[in-house]
Amino acid sequence: MFSIGLVIHDFVFGGSERIAIRLANHWAQQGFSVVLFAGSERGEMRGLLDPQVRLVRAPSAISRTHFSMWQVAEKAAAYFRQHPVAACFVPGNYHWPVAYKLGCLPLEVRPVILTQISSPIYKPGRNAWAQKFFNIRMRFLLRNTDRLVALDRTTAAQADALFRRSVAEAIPLPALPASLPAPKAVESGNYAILAAGRLTHAKGFDLLLKAFASVARVYPAASLTVCGAGPDHQALLDQARSEGLQDQVTLTGYVADIGPYLDKARLFVLSSRREGYGAVILEALATGRQVITTACTPAADDFASHPEAVRVVPVEDADALAQAMITALAQPAPDAQGLADLVQPFSITCGGQMYLSLMSSLLCRRGAVKAVS
């Protein structure tokens, strides 16, 4: 048993933060001493943290700004210098400054650092100069990380090539609870479509509403529910009204658990322009719901051999998104249990244990461990 630290900016809904909280809870429930350092308690997910996890807040709450993650990283490093832990987990690209600051600590108090790569290294549409800058930034920020954790083998191989040595492990995203109820079958005549995420431009809900307008013309009984909060809430309401969809589109605001909404849905749609691994795809499949996604996430590649489970369309293509939904609704729903079986490796039990094993291995070899420079 050893002590584990994690760092997040705050508890505002986000995929990386949600996974960090889930891992912290799981490790604490296994008997490990777990400390979660947060720049602020602000956010919808504060209530998800298990009381067994020790929460440490920055001395003064840090609000999100362009450079605020560096402030959180500095405060977190100062805390862990005074209160050392054996290992520390950095949950994703947004939090990479934490890995840099922790890596600058004196060796006698520096924890073993595991840093997650939560988004693709090579994003479609990124120009050559932007990619060069990203590569330099990644090598600089993560040069003292003991091990990088990718969510798929392709990203792990890309990281190894970027650092010119073996620096990364592929661990499936631990996005699902240890146990889940049996998925409910989809009833015939169900045309309910679900989407979820923060209401921002990056999530492409404007494209989804445009596509859904075409679906509604073919299936007047179809409905669209979007779970999530964000700055685009009013703009999306206005768009739905302008499309004449106000009676078929519902924006729920933030919900802690989309499970009950998935149970009632026929389809789940991810319309993002850019995305990390897309944990919500795993949640949808775990409840036996077919997924349509844009090619915005590495998760789409992981299920390429199962088109009955996950259909992929180009990013920014509302027409293709609409046609995929129309085609799916015209066919019988896939077997719900079969879809759920596909995502068993993504449980917190599996992924959480793989993280612990990696930390333990690094701690045992600590005298010989070198940074990933």
Results as ranks from 00 to 15, higher is better:
338 G>F: 14
366 R>M: 11
119 S>C: 07
38 A>W: 02
353 Q>W: 07
98 V>C: 15
104 C>Y: 08
240 A>P: 01
327 T>M: 01
307 P>I: 01
186 V>A: 01
342 L>N: 01
215 V>D: 04
226 V>A: 10
329 L>G: 14
181 P>Y: 03
217 R>D: 06
7 V>Y: 11
354 M>P: 11
335 D>I: 08
18 R>Q: 06
328 A>N: 09
237 L>E: 01
105 L>Q: 15
77 A>M: 05
281 I>K: 05
48 L>N: 07
283 E>Y: 14
342 L>P: 08
234 Q>Y: 01
115 T>N: 04
118 S>Y: 01
371 A>F: 14
161 A>E: 03
270 L>H: 15
89 F>Y: 10
349 T>D: 06
342 L>Y: 06
188 S>A: 15
202 A>G: 08
245 L>D: 03
122 Y>C: 09
337 Q>F: 09
289 R>Y: 07
51 P>N: 04
320 A>V: 13
130 A>S: 12
346 F>N: 14
170 A>K: 05
306 H>Q: 12
47 G>R: 13
115 T>I: 00
223 S>Y: 07
19 I>Y: 02
209 L>A: 01
92 G>F: 00
121 I>W: 10
335 D>G: 02
79 Y>S: 05
81 R>Q: 12
166 S>M: 12
332 P>R: 03
139 R>S: 03
87 A>W: 04
221 A>L: 03
253 G>N: 10
102 L>G: 07
248 Q>E: 02
122 Y>R: 10
141 L>N: 12
254 Y>Q: 12
16 S>L: 01
342 L>W: 00
205 F>A: 14
149 V>R: 00
17 E>N: 08
289 R>A: 11
317 D>W: 02
160 D>Q: 13
282 L>K: 14
233 H>G: 03
75 K>W: 07
90 V>R: 04
241 R>A: 09
12 V>E: 15
127 N>T: 10
21 I>S: 04
311 R>Y: 08
324 A>G: 04
362 L>R: 02
71 Q>E: 10
213 A>T: 12
250 T>V: 13
101 K>T: 01
344 Q>C: 00
292 I>C: 11
328 A>M: 09
210 K>C: 03
165 R>G: 04
118 S>A: 11
278 G>F: 00
347 S>A: 10
63 S>G: 08
107 L>S: 09
245 L>K: 03
95 H>F: 02
162 L>D: 13
189 G>D: 08
257 D>T: 01
175 A>L: 02
263 D>V: 05
363 L>P: 12
261 Y>V: 08
155 T>L: 07
58 A>L: 01
102 L>Q: 07
176 L>V: 02
339 L>R: 03
311 R>L: 11
343 V>A: 10
248 Q>V: 05
261 Y>T: 03
334 P>T: 00
39 G>S: 13
133 F>A: 09
243 E>N: 05
46 R>L: 13
132 K>S: 04
244 G>H: 00
11 F>L: 11
134 F>D: 06
342 L>C: 08
64 R>L: 13
365 R>H: 11
176 L>D: 15
47 G>T: 07
115 T>P: 06
130 A>P: 01
57 R>L: 14
184 K>S: 14
18 R>E: 02
60 S>L: 10
142 L>K: 12
65 T>E: 00
60 S>D: 10
320 A>G: 08
178 A>C: 15
7 V>M: 04
18 R>D: 06
205 F>P: 11
11 F>E: 04
246 Q>R: 05
313 V>N: 09
104 C>V: 02
66 H>I: 09
62 I>S: 09
249 V>N: 00
298 P>Q: 06
4 I>G: 04
